[in-house]
Write a protein that binds this DNA or RNA. Sequence first.
DNA 1: AATGTGACCGCGA
DNA 2: TTCGCGGCCACAT
Length: 106
Amino acid sequence: MTNSDNKLPNTFENIYAVVDSIPFGLVMTYSQVALYSGVTNPRVVGYALSRLNTNDRNTPWQRVVNSRGKISDRSQEQMKSQRDLLESEGVCFGRNGRIDLNVYGV
DNA sequence: AATGTGACCGCGA
DNA sequence: TTCGCGGCCACAT
């Protein structure tokens, strides 16, 4: 066991681990994921998730939304699939496409 | 080593 | 209430 083996796992691994822990049917904001994974800036979480597209994992990326309870801007295609996936988990979207974080938040 | 970039967030208008 | 702008930090090049 060398000293270099003591270093913490890289940021992405931490982020993915937290996202993996989000329960079925619930959502977390980027800020929350950042907080729980030890990252200071929530933007990094979005960055990590965007890189997830290329790595196939069973990570429930759809359960991460922004602080307003809305799906973050991206291609229409991706946004629609995220919404579909969440609705299939029983998450209800309000009138302006918002999720009530007091109900579905962790 | 330096610069660019982003699935964010909070605040002021 | 919605919209625009700046600040933030870690990954990519």
